[in-house]
């Protein structure tokens, strides 16, 4: 009993208000209300607010995040300080370059260092014209990580797919699976 309580406490401490992990089997899965994707492999999935997170090995090692429809005035992450005014805010009239800046600055405020973006370009998001760019960063301790961001604004809302992980092993491990998932987006 004591052990169960302790483990639950630990889980609460480590995950904040996220839902418990569930299994996503290979096949086609709905992501939010907008679209479905098809995956070749199984993922563990959890959701915090508008962000759905998939991982195979643990979200510190690699994570595939789906940001489902940020509205005008919303932030990507909740502010560490209570004052959300100080977090970068999504605006529906942003250019794609500004959306990239919004993502990069939001990520940089999460305790990552040397967050750099590269290769911003138009990219297909399902049947919509979206965008893509690549990320590189290091953890505060100095471990190198990398990421890829694909997104689109649909009906004035921002949808993002962010794949990130350690540069050594865990990001490359499922990169091809993620590319196929991104390529499989089908609007509902």
């Amino acid at each position: 009993m004591k052990r169960t309580t302790a483990v639950l406490t630990l889980v609460m401490l480590l995950t904040g208000c996220a839902t418990p992990y569930t299994l996503i089997e290979p096949g086609r899965t709905a992501v939010g209300d907008l679209y479905t994707v098809e995956s070749q492999i199984s993922w563990s999935s959890t959701r915090t607010g508008k962000i759905e997170l998939w991982t195979v090995d643990g979200n510190g090692l690699q994570a595939l995040r789906f940001v489902n429809g940020l509205a005008d005035g919303e932030t990507l992450f909740e502010g560490k300080r209570k004052d959300n005014k100080k977090m970068p805010t999504f605006r529906k009239n942003m250019t794609i370059s500004e959306i990239m800046e919004f993502v990069v600055d939001s990520v940089a405020l999460q305790g990552l260092e040397r967050v750099e973006s590269a290769g911003l370009r138009p990219y297909k998001f399902g049947n919509t014209q979206g965008f893509r760019f690549e990320l590189s960063y290091v953890s505060s301790k100095g471990l190198e990580g990398q990421g890829a961001v694909v997104g689109a604004v649909v009906r004035e809302r921002l949808y993002l797919i962010v794949y990130s992980g350690t540069r050594a092993y865990y990001y490359p491990k499922h990169r091809d699976h993620v590319e196929r998932i991104i390529g499989s987006i089908r609007m509902q």
């Binding site: 480590l14 979200n59 510190g60 990520v107 999460q110 305790g111 990552l112 990580g145 990130s164 350690t166």
Partner: peptide
């Protein structure tokens, strides 16, 4: 966020 420090050994 991309690499939560809580999971460090």
């Amino acid at each position: 966020m991309l690499m939560p420090p809580s999971f460090r050994l």
